[in-house]
Design a protein around this nucleic acid. Structure first.
Length: 598
DNA sequence: GGATCTAGCGCC
DNA sequence: AAACGGCGCTAAATCC
């Protein structure tokens, strides 16, 4: 890594401010010939749906930065700009998702190929937890200290010279950053991964603008139901004897301390100790084994779950309904996870509960009139990727014959034939499969099976299943051993997905992290290829991308094109998967419904 | 008093 | 020898 012992002075950037339509086409003429355009925008705020674009700054090498004051020029006079943004030049952005959205809403949608310096940096430094804002990138890759104090200045009124200089520099610096990042990416063999991110970027930008529609009335009913349950559970808890520990009752106001807050782990710990229940912490894994013995613990678990559902979802999600669109527009980060997976926030729609009430929260996410929701997800994608990467014969055989891997595992660990396997056996096997591929130990497997699959195993059983799993899938065992050697013998601190996406560690990685990245990351890669391709083909169907959840894609589709669109969606997803999986068939399950429920 | 950390919940 | 990974949000607890 290059270091810059002395910071380089901030370059002086020439610019021309355009406030007059008659000068526009003239000044854009040389830009039309450029192969690369660096673009930045300044807006009146950070919400593309309610704030407005003020400036667009465009930089090309050896030329003054062109700053166009969009407050001064009517949209009808902008065709030269539209033509420029719609040409085949590479468009360079910093966090281009935001600029894409702002430009789209201003009727100035830019056309790719794109280069996003933030995404490039995230791909390059994945796992190393660094900042990826423009200031950090300029310092890290160019040794330039940028002054970003004007970023949040008022871009609605009259603009100062320093604001214009700031705006010009932001665009100009992107050219230099791109050049530096390209060579870094190429040296790290990450250019292909970065290009995949760039291609997915407009799809992500549009997905956020599309947002999802929440049925507020149904949501309210569901919230009421949850709240009722929460209150009755609280009453039962008090009845069952959840009260302050004796020492705490020395309070001057005993009536106030008659009950405790069941969400407070410290209060709960004391209260349970007072009831002679032997626990070290109030964590779920410690409470679950005691739930059968002590009814109060089951009530406590129920209450905590209900309280979390109420505050995290029932009360929280309606607050995110946008006043202009009436829809929820979460913020997706396409490189949000170190594996390359998406993360989602404000609100996080990737963790909306599936089956928390009789009705289900996801049924409240609905399609607009005249539309339906198409949901498509990759079937057992992580296990398929494990089969591909490990080359495990048995897994590959099972998948190529179209067999069910959970049933196969059930048969292998119980010794029963495939026909004898019960649905209970299969559920056990499911927990075993998902638990053991990343090297879970027997104790955790036991807890995990109970917590997630309601499967009771003794420690000995968990141990036996673990042994039999690795006997049955010896290729998986060899894969684990191969990776183990890379950490503990070769001291390697990085690993890649099938497509080459890299994750690094600053300290010695855990084996499970090294096993996990190629699997989760490859799954993320195929999802991104899929949405990038969908971005190109969906417009002709009228369908809109409205959500992604790791191995799942959600479209809102006009009734009239449902059949064709779901066919296209499935085809695109399967083909994206097949780019990475050569030995395992890729399967995608598609459902059509008036809501997000499956 | 506000900022930050932790525990515990949801999802794939 | 033992070890599942990846996220975000809320409320309580703690720090400054």
């Amino acid at each position: 890594m290059t270091t810059f012992p002395h910071s380089i002075p901030i370059p002086v950037v020439e610019y021309e401010l355009i406030t007059n339509p008659s000068r526009l086409s003239e000044v854009l003429l040389p830009l039309l010939k450029a192969r690369v355009l660096a673009i930045d925008t300044e807006t009146t705020g950070l919400d593309p749906l309610s704030d407005r674009i003020r400036l667009i700054q465009i930089a090309i090498p050896k030329h003054p930065v062109v700053i166009i004051d969009l407050a001064a020029i009517s949209i009808h006079k902008l065709s030269p700009l539209k033509q420029l943004l719609n040409n085949n030049a590479v468009k360079v952005f910093q966090n281009g998702k935001f600029d894409w959205q702002v430009l789209e809403i201003a009727g100035l949608r830019p056309k790719g190929p794109f280069f996003d310096v933030m995404l490039a940096s995230q791909v390059l430094r994945s796992g190393l937890k660094k900042d990826h804002d423009l200031k950090s990138l300029a310092l890290e890759f160019l040794g330039i200290k940028l002054d970003k104090s004007l970023q949040s200045s008022n871009f609605a009124g009259k603009l100062s010279t320093s604001q214009l200089e700031y705006a010009a520099l932001d665009a100009f610096i992107l050219l230099k950053l791109r050049a530096r990042l390209i060579s870094k990416l190429r040296n790290a063999r990450l250019l292909e991964t970065a290009k995949m991110e760039f291609a997915a970027m407009p799809a992500v930008a549009e997905m956020e603008l599309n947002g999802m529609l929440l049925d507020v009335q149904e949501w309210h009913l569901l919230s009421e139901e949850l709240n009722q349950k929460k209150q009755t559970t609280l009453a039962e808890l008090v009845k069952a004897g959840l009260k302050p520990a004796p020492s705490a009752q020395l309070s001057l106001f005993p009536e106030i301390t008659e009950t405790i807050n069941p969400r407070s782990s410290t209060q709960v710990l004391n209260a349970l100790h007072a009831l002679n229940i032997p626990i070290q912490s109030t964590s779920k894994s410690e409470l679950i084994p005691l739930a059968r013995q002590y009814p109060i613990i089951q009530l406590l678990l129920n209450y905590r779950k209900l309280a979390s559902l109420c505050s995290n979802f029932a009360e929280a999600l309606p607050k995110h309904i946008h006043p202009i669109t009436g829809r929820i527009h979460p913020s997706y980060r396409q490189c949000g996870a170190r594996s390359g997976r998406f993360s989602c926030k404000k609100p996080n729609l990737q963790n909306v509960p599936r089956n928390c009430t009789a009705k289900g929260m996801r049924t409240c996410f609905i399609s607009a009139p005249g539309y339906q929701i198409i949901k498509a997800d990759y079937s057992q994608i992580e296990l398929r990727i494990v089969a591909e990467i490990s080359g495990d014969r048995r897994m590959l055989d099972a998948y190529s014959k179209g067999e069910d891997l959970h049933t196969l595992t059930a048969s292998l660990i119980t010794g029963k034939t495939l026909e004898e396997v019960t649905s209970e056996d299969r559920r056990i096997a499911k927990s075993v499969n998902f638990g053991l591929i990343y090297g879970m130990g027997a104790a955790k497997l036991q807890a995990y099976a109970e917590e997630k699959y309601d499967v009771l195993l003794t420690f000995e059983e968990a141990k036996q299943f673990r042994i039999r799993f690795f006997q049955a899938y010896s290729g998986v065992k060899r894969w684990h051993e191969r990776i183990r050697r890379t950490v503990y013998v070769k001291d390697i601190k990085q690993i890649r997905t099938i497509g080459g996406r890299r994750r690094r560690w600053s300290k010695k990685p855990r084996l499970s992290e090294l096993l996990n990245h190629p699997v989760q990351g490859t799954s993320a890669d195929m999802l991104k290829v899929a949405i990038a391709r969908l971005f190109k083909v969906l417009p002709k169907t009228g369908a809109k991308l409205i959500g992604v959840v790791h191995d799942e894609i959600l479209l809102e589709c006009p009734q009239t094109t449902l059949k064709r669109t779901s066919h296209i969606l499935k085809k695109v997803m399967v083909e994206a998967g097949e780019l990475y999986l050569q030995q395992v068939p890729v399967e995608v399950e598609v459902t059509i419904s008036s809501s997000w429920a499956s």
